[in-house]
Design a protein around this nucleic acid. Structure first.
Length: 203
DNA sequence: CAAACGATTTTCT
DNA sequence: GAAAATCGTTTGG
């Protein structure tokens, strides 16, 4: 039923324009394969974190710790961060080695393994809020902190191109959410989502 | 070694 | 709409 999906090549992540990569990720499919159970869906909302120049990023100012070390890796790996002790946020690391750019996946449109995702989220019906919001989405996909640093070209967590093109008109850019503390950097239009899609996080 | 904080979500008023 | 929950990471002594 689904068109054949090809995993994104390493080159996709290695580009140095994190904004462009963010836009390109919209319409791609984020898939996880946990214990033989496949879950995933189309990426509908993302946020870019431009490394050392972005106050909202953990790597702002070149801060390099054991946790953020992953972001300094070469693009193409996942960076999972535990926030508020409860939520697992999934990021895609981009750019070259030592340049800590990352893209936070905020929401996807459920496509594969919907039943399993509902079970993980303890929901009965498929509502838009099942995967809208970074923490919720990660839980639905079974992504955990221990997955941080995973190679996205592997078999457990990966991103596929199903040749769905999102017209530039359908891509909305706006300010990010939940980063008010970042001062003027919070006003950067680094958040992107697909126009009209219901599976995006709510204010 | 102790203290403060957060890229969120959920629940209550 | 506002506030609490909750724990690993980070920072300071």
């Amino acid at each position: 039923m689904q068109k054949k999906g090809n995993k994104l090549s390493k080159k996709f992540y290695l580009r140095n324009d994190v904004i462009q990569v963010s836009k390109d990720l919209l319409g791609k499919f984020l898939i996880t394969n946990k214990n033989g159970i496949v879950t995933g869906g189309m990426i509908t909302e993302v946020e870019a974190y431009a490394g050392v120049t972005d106050k909202a990023s953990h790597a702002f100012g070149g801060r390099r710790t054991q946790r953020t070390e992953i972001m300094f890796s070469e693009g193409g790996v996942g960076y999972v961060y535990l926030c508020y002790g409860i939520h697992h946020l999934f990021n895609v690391v981009t750019n070259e080695k030592d340049i800590p750019h990352a893209i936070l996946i905020r929401a996807i449109e459920p496509t594969f393994g919907i039943e399993e995702m509902l079970k993980r989220r303890k929901k009965i019906n498929l509502l838009p809020n099942i995967t809208s919001g970074p923490g919720s989405m990660s839980e639905a996909l079974g992504i955990k902190v221990k997955d941080s640093g995973i190679d996205l070209s592997g078999e457990e967590i990966f991103i596929e191109d199903h040749e769905i093109k999102i017209p530039p008109k359908e891509i909305i850019s706006t300010i990010r959410i939940g980063v008010d503390y970042a001062g003027k950097d919070a006003l950067r239009n680094y958040r992107f989502y697909i126009k009209g899609n219901k599976f995006i996080s709510r204010p």
